[in-house]
Design a protein around this nucleic acid. Structure first.
Ligand code: MN
Ligand code: MN
Ligand code: ZN
Ligand code: ZN
Lengths: 141, 141
DNA sequence: TGGTCGACGATAACGATTCTCGTTATCGTC
DNA sequence: GACGATAACGAGAATCGTTATCGTCGACCA
């Protein structure tokens, strides 16, 4: 089952009744390959001719986040971004402070190190964020 | 040389002229062992009888961050926190989503994994953030 | 001592997010 | 197929952390 249908089913199972706005937000997230902010999603849907309220975008993102259907990403610039959470695509982000570029990366060794910390921590860890900041290949020096 | 003097010297070398407000903020950060937000620092200094403007707190934190004298920490709750950056005390944070507790942790293996990613990335990485979220020992189940 | 320049603090402006509320869509029931 | 309950939806107001502005003051130097 595709991610959109899966998310809709999950929401329904939680007592929600996803409608038109929910579907448009889900389909948009499904289409994007990396993280997007609420306003960004709102703008994209608006220029696309469809009509979704900004509040609905925020509502959806919050609900999806609560159920782990999206990964919430805070790059520290005051905009919270989200991306569809699929089993396969777990990754973190490199941010260029000069040009603002955001790139995903994945690293098994890093993930294992984090798991080890989780076990020692005494916490029941449900999520983790890693952000690397610096200058990208084009911007350095 | 202690961290406060070091920070003051560094600021002076950058052309700033740290005064009374700067000193109070620095001394407060030096006293705290983990990250604090601007408003939190402002309140602490206010109840302490001293008088420092909120703008001065923000100004100091920004300047200290630019020069790497503090570590900027974004736990995703809309409040940016900072802590004195000392060579010895590098660490990251565990956040309990239930009670709000924030605890530091340090892990050499995690740091090495991050360094390895940095090298492969093509970026000139200057900082990294790691946040683990979940339920602390008291709050789980 | 007078002049320059940045530090300082008060306050207004800003902007992302959240809240509120009236309207509309959905769903199970009759 | 209408009905009533309930949640979704969108518009706009409110919130609140952060930033920008500006007048005043004090440190430093000629
Ligand atoms: Mn990971
Ligand atoms: Mn580290
Ligand atoms: Zn991504
Ligand atoms: Zn800390």
């Amino acid at each position: 089952m595709d991610w959109v249908s899966h998310a809709q089913a999950e929401l329904r199972g939680a007592g929600y009744r996803p409608g038109a706005a929910a579907r448009l937000v889900l389909e948009h997230l499904d289409r994007e390959d990396c993280c997007r902010g609420a306003q960004e999603i709102f703008d994209a849907l608006s220029t696309g001719g469809t009509k979704v309220g900004l509040a609905s975008v925020y509502r959806m993102l919050e609900r999806l986040d609560e159920r782990g259907l999206v990964q919430r990403i805070d790059l520290g610039d005051g905009i919270v971004r989200y991306e569809a959470a699929r089993d396969a695509g777990h990754h973190h982000h490199l941010v260029c402070g000069a040009c603002g570029k955001v790139e995903p990366f994945a690293d098994r060794r890093l993930e294992r190190a984090i798991e080890a910390v989780e076990e020692r921590s005494g916490y029941s860890v449900v999520a983790h964020d890693v952000v690397l900041r610096g200058a990208c290949a084009n911007c350095r020096d």
